[in-house]
Amino acid sequence: MPTLKELAKRPERLTPGHRLCAGCGAPIAVRLILAAADKPVVAANATGCLEVSTTIFPYTAWNIPWIHSAFENAAATIAGVESMYRAKRRRGEIDEEIYFVAFGGDGGTYDIGLQALSGALERGHRFLYVCYNNEAYMNTGIQRSSATPLGAWTTTSPVGRVLPGKTQWRKNLTEIVAAHGIPYVAQSVASNWRDLVNKAEKAFHTDGPSFINVLASCNRGWRHEPSETLKVMQLAVECCIWPLYEVENGVYRLTYKPKEKKPVEEWLRVQGRFRHLLAPENRHLVEAFQRYVDEEWEKLLKRCGEA
């Protein structure tokens, strides 16, 4: 695995001058993942913050071939690109080795793009799908998605007299993807470069479909200071809300184990979207949150042979 200094020698594939918000987690994940590619990369992008903010005509922040066409189809689009690559290789019209990657937010992956993702995984295209997961539809203004955690305030799960934010737990997409039996699936975070680069490198080297679900904070939606981005993401890992693990050819492995599992409240406390949960009358929700995280964590430890 390359060091940061070695990564810095590689070409900058996402240039400055993009218009993502200050302190956004998404471009951190994208820069690190693209730096992990030791061969040329072609990317597809679902509609979302990353897409709109990096390609405001006539500007593009992409130093690599890149395509966006719609919201729900990043996986299908990259499958088409990869198929053309295969066809051209077969006909001897191209000989370079190229990696293919698709980026989608959680809305474009957990929700509207799930079918296209599932189809592309099942067909076995050689590509990496990256879900940069900021746990809501941030591009349209912070609406809840199926990746939004329990109790979170969003503009479509507002906190009112009757409802305390989102009333459902999030869907476990990483497990859904793993159930496809593809060669490489991982969950990572933009606050741990080593973990993310290592996984991206493995994914790029995988002969078949691979998937990484990267937690990437949106400070506007999560309601924290831009400078706190790394801290807030890392707390999700330390509280075992967002465990870092991988499933390589069906074998689960925990890639990071917090020295001391922190209470979920520490993560909730640093984000405005959970502020209402800290009120005494919502204590039971924090407890439910904790119970859910504990159960999921225990299940994962078992799968990883750590329990």
Binding site: F57, P58, W62, N63, S69
Partner: peptide, 8 residues
């Protein structure tokens, strides 16, 4: 390298 489908 080309960019297809930018925000217009």
């Amino acid at each position: 390298p080309v960019t297809y489908g930018p925000l217009d």
